[in-house]
Nucleic acid binder design. Structure first.
Lengths: 166, 166
DNA sequence: TATTGTTATACTCTATAACTATA
DNA sequence: TATAGTTATAGAGTATAACAATA
């Protein structure tokens, strides 16, 4: 497996697909039958499209997921939010700095335990998240079109099973 | 979305899952219904397990996919192999250096066009690939156990569709 | 002594520009 | 001039160790 590529801006970069150019009929062979290869390619495509949809709000998938978690779980500390998302605490610091400097969330020193910060969405953060959800919904709707609602649900269920139980 | 973590060695690192520790019942909310989140988590799990299975051969998913492509498409040049896998040519150089220094493949200057290299597996590379395929088969077999063969096939088909058509 | 947030740091991936040698 | 391979480099993302403040 391999598969790479990013799309921060809207511009198309090169593409590893057999559509574009002169791959001149290279055979993928057993690669296409293994789960990992299409899984990675699909993940890149999805994130790419998510970024495009989210461009007006300038939110990455990771940032969006943090805002969602803060909305659903206000007042949690950094360790809790970071570990839930599989982000290491040291790496979460700069990420929060970014969100906080854009005034989308804020750190509030806990009264009980003055080591930890309660994390909360600001009003601006709540507003941005509301808009972001609508943009994300369009993204998901396009997937429903491509796969059909039942298949999309089944796909999410299988991926969740793999993520949780494999 | 977010989701991270790597597993180069066999050791367990921390985990973002709701199993391990004191996430103290944090709600994922709509995150679990979006495709991107479980997609990324599943991809990480799969690659992690692939690495574990491949540990005796010390092959990454990307390296394995290159060897597979060389076997199926001997004599292609770097540009062709790299672009098929979505690897940028500059980044493919070091990767090939690694495989070549382990004598798994070799670059052969083309007689027609002395700018390009025909890439071919060495005998050692063919042998390593044969072993690697067996280890990869175990990995895929475990997935078949988890999902059932029909579901696994459907999963691969849907991911391929997303990767190709979304 | 343990934990929270943090800094520093390093390593891998991915991306772009520009060089060289050929064509 | 264009292309193949390459170098240099920069930016994300991810990983670990260690420190200060607090418990």
């Amino acid at each position: 497996m391999s598969v790479s590529r990013t799309a921060t801006d809207g511009a198309k970069t090169q593409r590893g697909s057999r559509k574009e150019a002169e791959d001149a009929g290279i055979e993928l062979g057993e690669l296409s039958e293994m789960l990992g290869y299409p899984l990675k390619r699909a993940q890149l495509k999805i994130f790419e499209d998510f970024l495009r949809c989210m461009a007006p709000l300038q939110l990455t998938p990771a940032q969006f997921s943090v805002l969602l978690l803060l909305e659903r779980n206000p007042g949690r500390n950094q360790t809790e939010i970071a570990s839930t998302l599989g982000i290491l605490r040291p790496n979460f610091v700069a990420m929060l700095d970014g969100l906080e400097s854009r005034e989308l969330c804020s750190r509030v020193r806990s009264a009980n335990d003055r080591r930890s910060h309660h994390l909360v969405l600001t009003d601006k953060g709540r507003a941005a998240l509301a808009r972001a959800k609508k943009l994300a919904a369009k993204h998901e709707a396009r997937l429903n079109e491509l796969l059909g609602p039942a298949n999309r649900t089944a796909l999410v269920a299988m991926l969740t099973k793999v993520a949780d139980e494999f």
